[in-house]
Amino acid sequence: AEDTGVRVELAEEDDGKKTSIALRLWVEDQKKLKGKYKDSGAIEFTFDLNKEVPEAVAQEMVDSGFFLESDMKIVGKSIRDRVALIKWRRERTISRGK
C-alpha cells in the first residue's frame, strides 16, 4: 500500500472469523499531512469489516479533533488500504484451506 504517513495496524490478532476487529492508527510522518497535526498518540478503535466505511471513521476522527478536515481523505485511505489487506489475507487463507 502507498505510504500515506498514517499507519494503521491490527491491534489484536486476526482470527479470521470476527467481522469486528480492533485497529490502531497513528501518524508516522507528519509532513505528509496537510493540516497541522496535534500529536495525540495512537488511536485504537473497532471496525466492522462488513458494515463500516473507512471514510466514516475518518470523519469521526476529524469530528473528535484528532485530525483536520483537510486530512480526512488521507486517514480514510489509510484505513481502507489496511482493511483491504485484512480482507485479502482472509480470502487467501480460506481458499488455501479448501
Binding site: D29, S40, A42, E44, S64
Partner: peptide
C-alpha cells in the same frame, strides 16, 4: 500508562495511548 478514551456522538469509542518510540519512523 496514559490512556484516554473518546466516545463520539455516533457512539464510537476511540482509545488513545502513546505510540511506542520503536514504532515511530525516524524523522
Amino acid at each position: 500508562s496514559t490512556t484516554t478514551q473518546v466516545v463520539t456522538s455516533a457512539g464510537r469509542r476511540f482509545i488513545v495511548s502513546p505510540v511506542p518510540e520503536s514504532r515511530l519512523k525516524e524523522q
